[in-house]
Amino acid sequence: MGTIYCWFESLFGQDLAEHLWGWDMGTQDYTKANQFNTIGLYMLVVSIFMVVFFYYILNHPRFNRWWSWSLILGLNAGLNFLYAWLITLSDLSNNFISDDLVYIRDVNTNQIVTQKLSESNCVYFGIANTLIACLFFIIFSFTVRWWSKNCSTCPYPN
């Protein structure tokens, strides 16, 4: 999953990517949990659920227009944005991110010279997760829609 997320690395930054790969300053290795997999799995589960919900649970003749599909796409995007943003923001706030990824410190005084990671990186990661969630929502939609009774021609006819 990390590879896919890293398509958007320029958006949310390499340092946050390193954290999510599981970088641990103490061991100088990627010994923490790979959070790309966790977040990616959540993103997949939510996207699949949303697609299944739209095509097979809602499955309603009055909700088979492009705009209702877009509404669910937006909801999926919003949920995935929130999750990715909050997870990384929580890590940042609770200092779960290795210090060397967050700051550049003066070697002698250990004073912070530059802050490399900030809340905006978390927002951008949320956006990246949103984009990937939308991509998977579209892929899943076109994969499973054929069997939907009422929505198989949504967002547009075959």
Partner: peptide, 15 residues
């Protein structure tokens, strides 16, 4: 209202 919108109308070989 439904024609061109519902799958019964715009799905399949014959539309």
């Amino acid at each position: 209202k439904s024609i061109n919108c519902q799958p019964w109308s715009n799905r399949g070989k014959i539309k």
